[in-house]
Design a protein around this nucleic acid. Structure first.
Lengths: 261, 261
DNA sequence: CGCTCCCTTGATCAAGGTCAAGCTTGGTGG
DNA sequence: CCACCAAGCTTGACCTTGATCAAGGGAGCG
C-alpha cells in the first residue's frame, strides 16, 4: 500500500495513443486513477513511442537498489513487491504494487534506485525513459503538476504506514493490511470481499514488521472468530465491521473474546 | 528525518530577490541544499513578493491534519515536529524538521494537509501560496524538476524509516536516530559531535515507536558505555564507530558487553 | 517558593519473537 | 500419471524485548 498509486495512463482526447504506448493490456478502471486523464485535450500523441513493454516472471527483479535511475515504470498486470535493505543486510518490504501503480520515482533525486522491485507473479510492466518524460512534460506543464499530486499521495501513504509500523499491535497491523489490500484490489475491479494474495506469508510478515509465525497465528485466529475465511492465498472478508474495530485497536466484541479465549 | 529536506531557496543570479522574499534570517548553508540554486540564471525576481514570514512559539501549530492545503512552508530557524493521528486517536510523529526543510507538500494531492506540524521551540517559517508557486513555475520548468528531486528524496527517506520502524530493535533505533540527527544538524553548520535536542524524550520515543522509559534507559546505557555524553537536552557523540555498529545491529564490542553487563 | 513538566530508575508482565516440528501443496522428473 | 521434494504454511513451547506500572528526582517558571 505504499506506492505511487493511481497512475493509470488514460487517454481521453486521443483514445489510442497513450493506451497503445502503455500496452494493450492496460485497462483504466476509473477516471480518478489517471495521471493523464486530467490533462484535458492536450495533444497526447507525443507519448506514442515512449512506452516499452516488459514481462517479468515470478521472482525476477525489475531493478535493484543502487541501479542507475533512468526509467519510470507502470505496472500493467500482475504484482510487484518493493524493498529496501539496510547496511546490515536486513530487508524491509516497503510496498506491494498493483496494476496502475508507478515505480521508481524516488530515484529522481539521487539518480539511483533507492529500493528494489521484484515480481510476485508473472507481471507486465511498461517502461518510460525518464529523459523522454522530462522532455515531453516541458510542453505539458499539467503533467508535472499531476505528478506532484501523485507523489504527494505517495508521501501521505507512507506516513500512514509509519502509524502502522510505529504504533499498532500485531492484530491491528494485520487487520489494517487486509482491509487496505481489499480496498486496493476492489478499486481495480476485483470482487468485493474476497481477495487473492500474490505474496507469501513471509512477505506479509516482513511488510508488517512481524514474524511469519505471528501472521500465520493471527490469520488462524481471525478465521476462528469468523472475521475472515482463509484458504492458502485466498481470503474472504466475512465481518468487515469487526475487522475495522480490530484495525482501530478497539477491544474485540464480547463475542470475539468468548470465541478466542 | 522525514521531511522535504534541503529546500533552501538561494539566489545566485539575483542575490537579493529570493533571499529577501524568504526572509532575511535564512542562510543557505551549502549549495546542495538549494532548490533554486540549480536554476542557473533564470530570472528569480518573480518570487520577490511571494514569501510571507511567520513566527511560531513553542507548542503552536503551523497547520493541522485535515486543514485545507494552500501553502508550502519552509523552516527558516527553530524546529518543527510533524505527526499523523490514526482513527483511534493514536499519534505518530513522522518527522522533525530543521532550517531549510519544506513542509506540507503531501497536501498537493488531496487538497488537505495529511499531517500536523507543531513548533518545538520558537520557530520562524516562510509561507508560499501554492497557487503562486504553480503559476510561477509554469514559466520555470526547472523549478518543478527540482521539486521532483526534493520529493523523491523525501520518499526515499521515508522508506529508510520503514526499515527503522519495521526491523530494528530499540538500541538500533536510538543509535540511528542520534547519528541521523547529528548528521542533519551538522550539515546545517552545527558543531561536529555535539547536538542539542529541541524535542522531548517523549517525542523521540514516539518518533522511534518506543516507550519514553525505553529511550531514557537506553540513553543512560549509551552514556554508561561511553558512547555518548548526555545532559538534559544536549548530547555529545563520543564513540561514533561503536554507535554505528549498534545502529547496524552488530553485537557490541567485548568492551561494551563487559561494561553493560 | 512551590508547582509542573520532564526525565530517570526499578519491578513486573505480556506481546510477540525464536526455535522446533510437522503438515500441505504444487512442481518436477521418472 | 504418480512419487517425491522443496517451499511455504501452521502450530506448539519457550524466551526475550520492551511496554507498563509505580515512584521519585531535578530544573525552569510563575
Amino acid at each position: 500500500m505504499n506506492t505511487i498509486k493511481n497512475l493509470h495512463v488514460h487517454s481521453t482526447a486521443a483514445p489510442n495513443s497513450l493506451k497503445a504506448a502503455v500496452g494493450s493490456s492496460l485497462n483504466c478502471y476509473t477516471r480518478k486513477h489517471c495521471v493523464a486523464c486530467k490533462l484535458g485535450d492536450i495533444h497526447l500523441s507525443q507519448f506514442e513511442r515512449l512506452g516499452k513493454r516488459r514481462v517479468l516472471r515470478k521472482g525476477e527483479q525489475l531493478f535493484r537498489q543502487g541501479d542507475t535511475f533512468q526509467s519510470l515504470f507502470v505496472v500493467q498486470s500482475g504484482s510487484v513487491k518493493s524493498s529496501v535493505v539496510g547496511d546490515d543486510g536486513e530487508e524491509q518490504i516497503t510496498g506491494f504494487h498493483f496494476p496502475g501503480d508507478m515505480l521508481s520515482v524516488d530515484g529522481m533525486d539521487s539518480g539511483q534506485q533507492t529500493y528494489s522491485a521484484e515480481a510476485l507473479e508473472t507481471t507486465s510492466i511498461c517502461e518510460f525513459a525518464f529523459r523522454d518524460f522530462e522532455r515531453i512534460s516541458e510542453s505539458m506543464p499539467d503533467l508535472k503538476s499531476q505528478f506532484f499530486k501523485v507523489m504527494g499521495k505517495e508521501l501521505s501513504r507512507e506516513k500512514k504506514r509509519m502509524l502502522v509500523l510505529g504504533r499498532m499491535r500485531a492484530e491491528q497491523r494485520l487487520a489494517t493490511f487486509i482491509l487496505d489490500t481489499s480496498r486496493e484490489l476492489r478499486s481495480r475491479g476485483q470482487a468485493n470481499d474476497s481477495l487473492t494474495f500474490s505474496m507469501t506469508r513471509q512477505d506479509i510478515a516482513n511488510y508488517l514488521g512481524l514474524a511469519v509465525e505471528t501472521v500465520s497465528r493471527l490469520l488462524s485466529q481471525f478465521a476462528a472468530t469468523d472475521l475472515v475465511r482463509v484458504q492458502r492465498r485466498s481470503l474472504e472478508v466475512l465481518d468487515r465491521p469487526n475487522l475495522e474495530n480490530l484495525a482501530q485497536g478497539f477491544q474485540p466484541t464480547a463475542q470475539l473474546i468468548a470465541r478466542s479465549a
